[in-house]
């Protein structure tokens, strides 16, 4: 995968259709994600936000029935082509999940493991510290690096998951409702962290919290259920634009809380 200078987007979906078995889950997605910006994906539940997000790093491959049609361009290359190794894709496009899922290992190992298996040759202690600092967790855990990652609070666990993701130095970080299992204070910390991270990474975040999307994102993609119950990308644009001046009626209804 070589850098394509013409293409200034971080990742791009073209005519992307996503299926579970015979069922079309998401229809015809065309979206271009800007580099080092935060893009929020909003929409009613079941409209396929997670499905689209997982399509960006081929996590859907883990679901036997799932398959994709169309292309996802990353550095100008369709990641669904035969010669692309999904393992490589996932190292470059990391993921943070809805429920914090640290490994039942020490805090140190949680961060170091991903780098280790990817063949990181630099100084591991430095990488762990750098990643934990990057995830705004270092000061809270620096004296307890050998404690289990599971002993942390939910918000700390989620930041630990972010730390281990940035430790493998991806380009893009996908976040699927990263704060929905957390209390409001932990949620705010994650939001601050996302803005910090956007200086180095491209972030795509699924959220069902409209205020969150409005607060943190630069761009917003509104997904909705089509009349055949397949998800569609209704509207996509600059967040301020979507929230103050939506082009479509359904978008307006959704963000003003009339359904969802």
């Amino acid at each position: 995968m070589t850098e394509n200078n013409i293409n200034s987007y971080a990742i791009e979906a073209k005519d992307l259709n996503l299926y579970y078995g015979e069922t079309l889950a998401v229809r015809d997605v065309n979206i271009q994600i800007e580099k080092q910006k935060i893009t929020a994906m909003i929409g009613p539940s079941g409209c396929g936000k997670s499905t689209v997000l997982r399509a960006f790093n081929r996590m859907n491959d883990l679901i036997p029935s799932a398959h994709a049609n169309g292309s996802v361009l990353y550095h100008g290359k369709n990641i669904y082509e035969e010669d692309v190794d999904p393992v490589e894709v996932r190292r470059r496009i990391g993921m943070v999940f809805q429920k914090p899922n640290p490994f039942p290992k020490s805090i140190y190992d949680n961060v170091a493991w991903g780098a280790q298996i990817n063949g990181y040759t630099g100084n591991m202690d430095d990488l762990v510290e750098e990643s934990l600092r990057g995830a705004a967790l270092w000061n809270e855990v620096k004296d307890n690096l050998d404690k289990s990652g599971l002993s942390l609070s939910g918000g700390q666990q989620q930041r630990l998951c972010i730390a281990r993701t940035i430790a493998v130095k991806p380009d893009i970080i996908l976040m699927d409702e990263p704060a929905s299992a957390l209390d409001p204070i932990a949620t705010l910390k994650i939001e601050d962290l996302m803005q910090e991270l956007a200086k180095d990474f491209t972030i795509i975040v699924v959220t069902h919290n409209m205020q969150q999307a409005a607060r943190v994102s630069n761009f917003t993609a509104f997904f909705n259920l089509g009349e055949d119950y397949a998800g569609v990308l209704e509207e996509y644009g600059v967040t301020a634009e979507i929230f103050t001046n939506p082009k479509k009626k359904t978008t307006e209804d959704y963000i003003t809380g009339r359904f969802g």
Partner: peptide, 11 residues
């Protein structure tokens, strides 16, 4: 979730 975390890191 453990499997996903692992695959998500490029394992």
């Amino acid at each position: 979730s453990l499997r996903q975390a692992s695959f998500g890191l490029g394992a």
